[in-house]
Design a protein around this nucleic acid. Structure first.
Lengths: 137, 137
DNA sequence: CGCATTAGTAACCATTGGGTAACTACTTTC
DNA sequence: GAAAGTAGTTACCCAATGGTTACTAATGCG
């Protein structure tokens, strides 16, 4: 159980119906992580994001950005120009979260070999292939 | 693009088919986060975890633990006793990740009010209710 | 014998998340 | 007048995720 520093809230992440289950919403979703991380590099347009995040469909990019905007992590600015220009930027709140997410990203990148080794040892064929490919290089 | 410190790997999280997409696998999944965080408090048995993580079904607990074990983040020890006793513990690798996840968890807890305010402003009825309930306290 | 306890797994179903493709709206340029 | 470029949305479909329920195995205890 944790007591919130600023307000008087008392809650426990492990309980259902607890507001901090929003954590899960923030982290889940296949594209949230990549989108937030991409925006760390600064303000970007829809098409730029689509190009950067390989494999994201227009629908999911839009949906993910809408979600982040909803939570106040990303701001969306429409410029009155032709052709239209819309850009997205992390808010201060978003920046904070992005920093933490980036830590995990860096950690993961540095431990890819270890995790692959574990997976391969447990019989994961994809991990075995990847390891073999990396070893051959 | 990031170059791995220990090996010679070069990869980019934003590319598909990149090994660091494992990040996503680690973070996604409704229960991974809670399970890892729960295990930060030390070695635990199946039933203890089930009690702690409110709402998790036996199936999902088992599946989540199996996944974490697969990746080498959690170790599973079976004791030759009757009734059977099995306990789970974070490995060194798991501990590291758990620490980072906890940062995000703490951040989220501290910013619940802000995020709820944003959501409420964007017309989210659940957020409006929660805010009203918190205000009344 | 039969029940209780622990730690599951298996089968089945409902929900949701995500992908694909097609379509809109607006204006400048050819 | 038609095409191109920008930023989307909508409809439709499939696959993955997760929930529910029922079942197993092993053994000590009354």
């Amino acid at each position: 159980m944790v007591t919130n520093a600023t307000e008087g809230y008392t809650f426990d992440v492990f309980k259902r119906h607890c507001a901090s289950h929003m954590v899960l919403d923030l982290l889940s979703g296949k594209w949230t992580y990549l989108t937030v991380t991409a925006l760390r590099q600064g303000r970007m347009r829809n098409a730029e994001l689509a190009r950067k995040i390989e494999g994201i469909s227009p629908k999911m990019l839009s949906q993910t950005l809408r979600g982040l905007e909803h939570d106040g992590l990303v701001s969306r600015t429409v410029h009155a120009e032709v052709p239209p220009r819309v850009d997205y930027e992390l808010t201060a709140l978003g920046e904070e979260l992005a920093g933490l997410m980036d830590q995990i990203c860096i950690w993961a990148q540095n431990h890819v070999p270890e995790i692959l080794t574990h997976r391969a040892a447990n019989g994961d064929p994809e991990a075995q292939e990847r390891l073999a490919a990396a070893g051959a290089r």
